[in-house]
């Protein structure tokens, strides 16, 4: 994944240590605060999040941008709010 989609100011929701579905619930709670067109990152070390963040985007009609890596190696799943 290229990091082109995000700038240094990417808003990241910290879901480290949370097990699914908790990261997805946190994401659903936060998305309302994100302006349409803006990006939100979800830092999650639970393995289910790798599949469930893109699935959430498909089911909730949002855009899954891709996966990046935080400084500590934890994946950050990047979403663009489109609705």
């Amino acid at each position: 994944m290229s990091g082109a989609a995000s700038g240094p100011e990417l808003d990241v929701l910290d879901c480290r240590g949370l097990l699914c579905p908790a990261p997805i619930i946190a994401l659903a709670r936060r998305i309302g605060d994100v302006p349409v067109g803006a990006l939100l990152g979800v830092a999650a070390d639970d393995t289910a999040a790798r599949h469930d963040v893109p699935a959430w985007c498909r089911m909730r009609a949002q855009e899954f941008v891709g996966e990046e890596k935080a400084a500590d190696g934890v994946p950050i799943y990047v979403i663009r709010r489109i609705t």
Partner: peptide, 24 residues
Amino acid sequence: GSACAVDTREPSRVLAAMGALTHG
């Protein structure tokens, strides 16, 4: 097939490979 419901704590490989939601 959700991760929390199985011993391995890994989500279903089948659901993951299909791009389906794995929790719930």
